[in-house]
Design a protein around this nucleic acid. Structure first.
Lengths: 199, 199, 199, 199
DNA sequence: TATGAATGAGTGTTCATTCAT
DNA sequence: TATGAATGAACACTCATTCAT
């Protein structure tokens, strides 16, 4: 079942790679600019400047394209967060939280609507293994950080914090707010408050 | 444009009302039990025990049905929250927050998956006026409560708190957690923390 | 699995029946006049003077239409053959064989190319239960007749005779021969010869 | 029109020949093992270990490949039957018929499903000249044999006998019977019976 | 000459919506 | 007013065939 969500071939070079990327990028753009209901295979191919046939050469179906976009997003997040966790290791608690939040927001900042759209799609898709692992890793990184800092029930806290930030960031994007700094400040307040460390 | 999201007639009594309700209830059930992709007009009519023709007599289209469900949900929330705000008026801050949260969760508790599904649909639908007003009212009630209690920047806070609770509650439902009490406790912590009043 | 080969509804009256029949008849005509490769759902609908949507209201797919045509054919054959077996009961062996053959050919005579086309299609389709039963019944009727007349290994003989007649009749139709009488005479010779009763 | 069914080049030696053969063999295997619906040019190339481009270098299209397989089959049959007719020349009638039947079955015995599959395909394809000639030759050989033995209306008899044997052999293969000896015996009975020479 | 990426017309199928009964 | 048969645009997806490399 997993194969329906995986690319057919993952070409490493040349024209193939270009086509493959064009398809993914087109899908992303459509999702953001035209909405999920406009995300048809024909439209994707059109915007990618590619034929439908080519699209199907690389992906077994529409869902696989979206799934791949999600995977890319999660992979990026893992990289960013891992880096942030490392950087935070030597910091005091408050600035460390800031570092982590900044990393999380970085991702939302780059293409906020895309992130939101993909997170939405994720809910409708059957969760494939890799995505599941990536999400677990994200929570794991945060939980690890919290545990290290002596926070009790780190797993649960990580879960709640992720959900909380997701909710607030989504709402902000949705409302068209683009004051990332302000958002970050408020998230910091929320997180530290939740953790009982508003000092 | 708004008329596409409104019922054709809002019959207050008799067989008409029954048909109308049957349609709405059928749509709700399908959304929860069979998923959004199963939500077709024919299926709705079938589960409602009504002909498609009748369905179109009361609703101009599929979206109008969903929009009406959303409106119902928001109306319910307004009622619950207004009542809670009244009840909270005489309470100390902490218990007052608890009262408000309880009201908010009440709604999620009754039909959690439906609430989540509708909130998802809401994002895809063009926002009709009434829903917009209802949502503004919800935030207004909370903002009013906060202002009364001397919280600065009450509007913004209300916005964030709603988003925060929405995020955490959704994630909990999604993860299959059904420990409402626990959830409420964590939300309380988050809210009070955010407000800088963890006393 | 069987449901993919069965009609969706078998409407007994009115417009429905007419549409259903029009679809079947159109498919039969296309198969005969335009060939199997022209048998597309859109073409069927077009020739039936009906929309594709209607077609799918009555049949779950293209295969189901063909399967139904086959079933109709087999049902007809069973009726004809049963009647012939009854009529042959009181006849001497030679004329009795003639009666059975006449019945078999009757069917081919009515719409020879259709019969041939359907028999071809039958080989590509997963065999559904009813068709299987009908075919068994056909062979059973012949085997019963043979057994009654003291023919040894009646089952096997029935199998061979059916295959033999099928082969010869098909070839004749294919070659465009339309001398049914002559064909019948030759089949008789073949059958009686095979049975070792050329008297 | 005929050129669409002929190979582009018929290379007699070297790598070309190998490629050509690989394509034909791949097509044959697919037809037998995966069914006619799996017979796509891409799949053929894949199983042949060759690129689609190469496939089209040797054959103008898919049909040409199948047509060539059919021609090969018919050529084989002509060779076998010619040899058998020669061998039968000095035999008495009964054993002579046996010799001819054995030759015919030889062909079916080697790759029964392939023979059946190709005979099926043959019916869908426009008949190209060479195949027509080959089939005429087959009937001619049999008719010649019969005429020599004083059988009246030898042409017609040859036609019927071929059809008869084809029908019975096909049915046997289809039913999964693999008792070639038994089948031969029954065919003999049928043929001799038809010819009125059961002695 | 061989490759295989690219093409796009064509196929099966669905579903929101209409309208004759 | 209620029905449900009919509609057909739109969608996902395939595959024979071409052509730049």
């Amino acid at each position: 079942m997993d194969t329906r969500l995986k690319p057919r071939k993952t070409p490493v070079q040349g024209r193939s790679k270009a086509t493959c990327d064009a398809v993914l990028e087109a899908a992303a753009r459509i999702l953001v600019e035209e909405g999920r209901s406009a995300l048809t295979t024909n439209r994707i191919a059109e915007r990618a400047g590619v034929s439908v046939g080519s699209l199907y050469q690389y992906f077994p179906g529409k869902e696989a394209i979206v799934a791949e976009l999600i995977r890319e997003m999660r992979r990026d997040m893992v990289v960013l967060l891992r880096r942030a966790v490392d950087a935070a290791a030597t910091q005091a608690f408050r600035p460390a939280v800031g570092t982590l939040l900044a990393a999380t927001l970085d991702h939302h900042t780059a293409r906020p609507e895309l992130a939101r759209a993909l997170e939405r799609e994720e809910e409708d898709l059957p969760i494939d293994m890799e995505t599941q692992v990536l999400k677990a890793e994200l929570r794991g990184l945060i939980a690890g950080f919290l545990r290290e800092r002596g926070v009790a029930d780190a797993e649960r806290c990580a879960f709640d914090l992720v959900a909380m930030c997701h909710g607030m960031a989504s709402a902000a994007v949705r409302a068209g707010q683009d004051d990332t700094e302000g958002l970050k400040a408020r998230l910091e307040r929320a997180v530290l408050g939740y953790l009982g460390r508003p000092e």
